[in-house]
Write a protein that binds this DNA or RNA. Structure first.
Lengths: 213, 213
DNA sequence: CTTGCACTTTACCGACCGGTCAACTAGTGT
DNA sequence: ACACTAGTTGACCGGTCGGTAAAGTGCAAG
């Protein structure tokens, strides 16, 4: 078991760099965090960073992969599959996000908002590589939302003709907007105050779907 | 008429700086645009900038004031007061935003999203001054939304017990989220695809408002 | 003519940016 | 004992960042 184990004590520097990059970039932003700061927090010299990653962008891309994997495992799957009924699942999801943002604020003093949405806003106009990676992760989140909505259709909670793909996209859009507002407020209460809008948006018959193609 | 006129040919440099800062910061982001670039685009030397403004932050604050004033005059007031009926007004607003984003993309090659939301995301965690200024402008937008919703209540389009303040905040949140998604896609069609969600959110009875305090 | 002031110009500052490089260390397989 | 290699280290690079200082320009009032 030496070539099969993915992470030995080797790569300890690599893991530390990914962890430091996550904490700093999620807590602030891509451009406001420098290579030097990431290395300092990781306890690794700058040259080692460039041994494991071609540069800052590649480090960020790898960090986003681990970030999404953890988010899927710790929030998306337990939060969306746990409760019974669509409304309860939406509420559980909102509270999970609220708990994350509130914890980040007490730990680092800042309410970060959505790490993916933040990066999409910050780099979307001038870094196509990062933008497309973020777009991929957002699509993955949308797919989780859609499976929850499909289940609600099967259980009769939503009408059979519901366009669950479109509704899942709207779910993500509203969630991103809620997190933008919460970040502008720097107040996690904004998430709870705006959270019920998700139920209003997703649990209503959406009378106009004649957008047939 | 020499002290009363607000802008003579004096202050031409000041106006040029505000205009350049708007084009560059709205088109990209705050941190990615430097003082030197703003001065170059304005045709003004760096020292002159520091004659009119204490620094980059103050220049940005003044730019945001003029940006909001123009947005209110050119989009908010004509777009929201023009059409008859809530649904038509929402649609007109969505199409006005879509037209703006599409024009920006053809002119500068980039779809910028919401300038205020972008800045809130980029600087919200580490520049309280900018954050509070943005928060003020977002509140002003919300107030416009609310007056439209109040009018809809008076016209019987919405039930009398509607919490128009909360609904206006949800309107803004969803609009911001739609623009985040459009920026991640770099495609103005996303605005039109997600736009109908605004109608679904605002034109439904919103059964649970028992969030009394 | 001279003084004062708003504005401009240019040179310059220290700090920091992402990234490079060559030398070095330690562990492994032969 | 040896060579090879993954990993580490610290010095260094040119460029850019926001901001400063001081000299200079032109115009208007006294």
């Amino acid at each position: 078991m030496e070539a099969t184990t993915p992470n030995d004590t080797r790569n300890a520097s690599r893991e530390a760099l990914l962890q430091a990059a996550r904490e700093l970039i999620v807590g602030r932003s891509y451009t406001s965090v420098g290579i030097a700061e990431i290395c300092a927090q990781a306890g690794v010299r700058k040259g080692s960073l460039y041994h494991f990653f071609p540069g800052k962008e590649a480090l960020t891309l790898a960090m986003l992969e681990t970030l999404y994997a953890d988010f899927e495992r710790e929030v998306l799957i337990p939060g969306l599959a746990g409760a019974n009924g669509l409304r309860a699942r939406i509420d559980a999801f909102v509270h999970a996000i609220h708990a994350f943002e509130a914890r980040m604020q007490t730990e680092s003093g800042q309410l970060p908002g959505c790490p993916f949405g933040n990066l999409a806003v910050e780099m979307g106009t001038h870094n196509p590589t990062l933008r497309q990676a973020i777009r991929k992760h957002l699509d993955a989140v949308t797919a989780h939302f859609r499976s929850v909505l499909d289940e609600a259709v099967q259980d009769g909670e939503l009408p059979p003709q519901t366009d669950t793909g479109a509704a899942a996209e709207q779910w993500l859009a509203l969630m991103e907007g809620i997190l933008v507002m919460a970040k502008a407020d720097q107040d996690p209460a904004t998430i709870l105050r705006l959270g019920p809008a998700l139920g209003a948006l997703l649990l209503n018959p959406t009378p106009e779907v004649r957008h047939e193609r």
